[in-house]
Design a protein around this nucleic acid. Structure first.
Length: 480
RNA sequence: GGCGGCGUGGCCAAGUGGUAAGGCAAAGGUCUGCAAAACCUUCACUCACCGGUUCAAAUCCGGUCGCCGCCUCCA
């Protein structure tokens, strides 16, 4: 089965057939850089990173463009509030965004264009729209005339009359239709500006994406993505700008990810119920967060909570425990006769790539793909004592192939588990030296068959969240 | 008001016509002096509710209820 993707434009899953065989071009709307990113952003960019990786894995040559909106009212407002040039704000938050993306193992897009570096392209596109009669100057602004563009609202599937009936549209008598939107905004005194045929000003929000995507991809390309909330007005307006100018279909597949919710409500700046990526990573491993974000389908809403994050951690820990078990077996000299368990594992391993691909081909069903991994984990754990080394090696390789696409489970198992333990140890108020001392004392006691004292020590440490692990090699410990 | 989506076990979550994956949690068991991890077993005759279509429906159709999103900046 070939890749099928849900296209917002058609409202259904469609076979993915790129415009140019063997190549895929994907544009994803980036952030407006005026503040720290929250985990809603994290989800969007993790999702498209996964899509980017999977498209590549299917053999396509993928060009991925993700922009920075580095000029906008919100940036200007913040700059004014802080009394600094707007560039200081945009540069700072571009750097913060880059750090966040890196911490989430998000691969760099092919190009990350900035709006302010594409003013000539933007102006050219606006001029083209004016020439064709789709845009008009109103004072120092230039607006797009939605009534001129007959297929306006085809993406969000609404109609102009209903939109206006619901009307929380602000009245602006310079607009011919209240739904008209700004392509160019004249600068008020003190605002940053660029010279243009319409005077000093700056681009409207939507035009940059049309201009930049067409600059890098041409007038038509394969995939355009972003959060669901961008469908209207942003993407709708992008379509209007691009298709009015070129007369050609702008984008073949529109892909939109679902929201991250807090208590079943959308997380957003305006509701004030958001967590920044940095806040979350203070008490949660980045890989756990990424795992959590991929644990449900990208179009479903995803409820963010400590409880859910903990479950993801427990699940990922289970996977890594199993992978660590493989490593230990491979390092050790133990060999074993293949048994029923090994045969089952062999079967699961052989089937894994196909099952993974089938899940991913069905509109990037990462939740199902992870389900397959968990099934594999059980087989691994069962077969661990008896499986031949070649089979374990093969298992590792197959998991690694998937890990490389999902961007999780790709750590060295012992390192991941160590990282987790490090993190957990921050909440422990007992010094490692003391634990070692008690372990020694307990060893003496156990040697003397004084299990009472031994258990006292175990209990004492357990109260402090320290779990003792006895093995043939001696006693180690971990944090609960 | 318009448009769109969702409702699967205690929780999370796949499944869109063929008789309910997987994870977390819980309970019992195996292993262990005791623990931990792991393994085994149990845990939805049922998929919000009511009708209908069908040999067959969580999946299709109609209705009801509940929740959410977009319609204003928003991933």
């Amino acid at each position: 089965m070939a890749l099928r993707v849900y296209n917002t434009l058609s409202g259904s899953k469609e076979p993915f057939v790129p415009l140019t065989p063997g190549k895929a071009r994907m544009y994803v709307c980036g952030v407006t850089v005026y503040d720290f990113c929250h985990i809603g952003h994290a989800r969007a960019y993790v999702v498209f990173d996964m899509i980017y990786r999977y498209l590549q894995a299917t053999g396509l040559e993928v060009e991925y463009v993700r922009n920075y909106t580095d000029i906008d009212d919100k940036i200007i407002n913040r700059a004014n509030r802080e009394g600094v040039p707007y560039q200081e704000i945009s540069e700072k938050f571009i750097a913060e965004f880059d750090r966040d993306m890196e911490s989430l193992s998000i691969q760099l897009p092919t190009v990350q264009p900035k709006a302010t570096e594409h003013i000539p392209e933007i102006i050219a596109l606006i001029e083209r729209l004016i020439e064709k009669g789709y845009a008009y100057q109103a004072g120092s602004d230039v607006n797009f005339s939605v009534e001129k563009f007959s297929t306006y609202l085809k993406l969000s599937k609404r109609n102009l009359e209903d939109m206006q009936a619901g009307a929380r549209v602000e009245v602006d008598d310079r607009k011919r239709n209240p739904m008209d939107f700004a392509l160019w905004k004249g600068a008020k005194p003190g605002e940053p500006y660029w010279e243009s045929p319409w005077g000093q000003g700056r681009p409207g929000w939507h035009i940059e994406c049309s201009a930049m995507s067409m600059k890098y991809f041409g007038e038509s390309f394969d995939i355009h993505g972003g959060g669901k909330d961008l469908i209207f007005p942003h993407h709708e307006n992008e379509i209007a700008q691009a298709e009015a100018a070129t007369g050609k279909p702008f984008v073949k597949y529109w892909i939109h990810n679902g929201f991250v919710n807090i208590n079943a409500e959308k997380m957003s700046k305006s509701l004030g119920n958001f967590f920044t990526i940095k806040q979350v990573l203070e008490h949660c491993d980045a890989e756990v967060l990424r795992f959590f974000l991929l644990s449900s389908h990208y179009r479903s809403p995803l409820d963010f909570s400590d409880q859910n994050l903990k479950e993801s951690q427990a699940g990922l820990e289970r996977i890594y425990n199993s992978l660590a078990g493989i490593d230990e077996r491979l390092l050790g000299s133990a060999t074993a006769a293949a048994g029923e368990e090994a045969a089952e594992l062999e079967e699961k391993v052989a089937a894994l790539p196909g099952r993974f691909r089938e899940a991913m081909d069905d509109d990037f069903n990462t939740a199902l793909a992870l389900g397959h991994i968990f099934e594999l984990v059980r087989s691994i754990n069962k077969a661990l004592p008896s499986a031949p080394a070649e089979l374990l090696l093969k298992t590792k390789q197959e998991v690694a192939a998937i890990a490389g696409i999902l961007g999780v489970m790709d750590s060295v198992p012992a390192e991941f588990l160590g990282r987790l333990m490090q993190r957990k140890s921050e909440g422990v108020e007992i010094a490692p030296e003391e634990i070692e001392k008690l372990i020694e004392e307990r060893a003496e006691a156990r040697k003397a068959k004084n299990y009472k004292r031994g258990d006292e020590i175990r209990d004492y440490l357990a109260e402090r969240n320290i779990i003792l692990l006895d093995s043939a090699q001696g006693t180690s410990w971990k944090i609960k």
